[in-house]
């Protein structure tokens, strides 16, 4: 039986989650190879259109990783990102993509284990859902 390996786009902020992912890498911690990381200055930069574009370009799931609640370098960029992700999840569910293929996780730059946990958990979830219906 063929194992479906989801393509997951992880949008990580420079100050926290990208650091966590970096640390995970240098610590030789494993996380699914289907996870591709894109770095943004702050998750507040993430536009709903980027997420939709990712799905259109072939992503099976999109993970947005930002700083802990009070840890955003730009004060509240992560809070705004959370609101966008929340709304977008509802919209994606309404249009038939489901609300499980998009998620936001919060972590500090030191929490490499949190990054690995998020990446692994999310990939497993998406694997169970199968390939994205937007892929033709």
């Amino acid at each position: 039986m063929e194992q479906f390996e989801p393509k997951v786009l992880a949008i990580c902020c420079w100050w926290c989650s990208y650091g966590a992912a970096d640390l995970a890498g240098t610590s030789k911690m494993d996380y699914p190879t289907g996870v591709r990381i894109v770095r943004v200055p702050c998750t507040g930069r993430v536009d709903p259109l980027h997420v939709l574009q990712a799905f259109k370009e072939g992503a099976d799931g999109v993970l947005v990783a930002g700083c802990l609640k009070d840890g955003c370098h730009y004060v509240d960029g992560n809070i705004k990102a959370e609101a966008r992700v929340l709304w977008l999840k509802k919209k994606l569910k309404a249009v038939g993509l489901g609300d499980e293929r998009l998620e936001m996780y919060l972590m500090s730059a030191a929490q490499s284990d949190r990054f690995v946990q998020a990446a692994t958990e999310f990939t497993e979830r998406v694997a169970k859902l199968g390939p994205s219906p937007l892929k033709r």
Partner: peptide
């Protein structure tokens, strides 16, 4: 619509509640 959602998410969280397509 996505551009507006983008802008609104920063100022109007209550609009996200009671979502209906």
């Amino acid at each position: 619509g996505l551009a507006m959602m983008d802008a609104l998410a920063t100022v109007a969280y209550p609009l996200v509640e009671n979502y209906s397509l």
